[in-house]
């Protein structure tokens, strides 16, 4: 959490190595596993649609395996395809939902949410009904981002899931669908939890829910300042996107809270 020793310095170690698109694709298709992993991440950050075809190939990679059978390159490729957000990635990402690596399925679910293409809803819903262990939080959140109201009844049982992160995801998605007040209570309870990472997750889940009246709770949560500010901004954007309240009312509830923090 600490800053750098001098006020003006920033951490140059995390700055991306600059690559041209050609260099990145060459690295992605090269022999060095680390270079390939880095190139997939890089193509996602630059969001160049020319990255879609090479990344779809990387999504079927067989060479980069972990000791437990995971597919690290596929995980990064799925994530990058989501960041690029090109509809051509849809079939490849839907296929990745059946990958044996749970983390690949997780990244594919989040990526499908970013594509904002309703054709992803049925495969995600099928995965949610699977008897096997799944990346529940990612699947539920993706269905929420896709505004898949037909998923409401399939999501509801997850309010009682053993993982509170999963409960929190189910609560924000169902609130977006139904605006039922008791769902906000689940989220505000998690926002006051002694566990700081859970508070942080609940903060952004409250923002995703679009519950504008909760803005003062976001502003005063025991979570780092920049995260509270960013969560309020996200709440504003979600409320605008949902369009359930007039803009004036959204502004009246959120702007004073932001002004207090900035």
């Amino acid at each position: 959490m600490n800053g750098s020793p001098t006020r003006i310095a920033s951490n140059t170690a995390v700055l991306p190595q600059q690559l041209t698109w050609e260099q990145a694709v060459a690295k992605l298709q090269g022999a060095d596993l680390q270079d390939r992993y880095y190139a997939a991440w890089y193509l996602g950050t630059v969001r160049d649609p020319r990255g879609v075809e090479p990344l779809l190939l990387a999504l079927q990679d067989e060479r980069d395996r972990t000791a437990l059978g995971g597919y690290p390159l596929r995980r990064n490729a799925a994530k990058a395809l989501g960041q690029i957000g090109d509809a051509r990635a849809l079939p490849g990402l839907v296929a990745a939902l059946t990958c044996t690596d749970l983390h690949v399925r997780e990244e594919a679910a989040y990526a499908l949410a970013q594509l904002q293409d309703a054709r992803a809803v049925d495969p995600l819903l099928a995965l949610l009904r699977s008897p096997e262990e799944q990346p529940w939080e990612a699947i539920i959140e993706a269905l929420g981002q896709l505004n898949a109201r037909q998923a409401e009844e399939a999501i509801r049982p997850f309010l009682g899931h053993a993982s509170r992160r999963v409960q929190s995801a189910a609560a924000w998605v169902l609130y977006r669908f139904t605006q039922a007040e008791e769902l906000t209570q689940i989220l505000t309870r998690l926002l006051a939890d002694p566990n700081s990472s859970l508070r942080q997750a609940a903060l952004f889940d409250l923002a995703e829910s679009g519950w504008v009246a909760g803005a003062p709770l976001l502003a005063t949560a025991d979570v780092a300042l920049n995260l509270r500010i960013n969560a309020l901004k996200r709440l504003f954007d979600v409320a605008l996107q949902l369009g359930q309240l007039p803009l004036v009312q959204v502004a009246e509830l959120i702007i004073p809270e932001l002004d207090r923090l900035l």
């Binding site: 600490n2 800053g3 020793p5 001098t6 780092a224 300042l225």
Partner: peptide, 10 residues
């Protein structure tokens, strides 16, 4: 606090 940017922001 020149080290802790969190504190510095306050």
């Amino acid at each position: 606090d020149s080290f802790d940017y969190g504190a510095r922001a306050y």
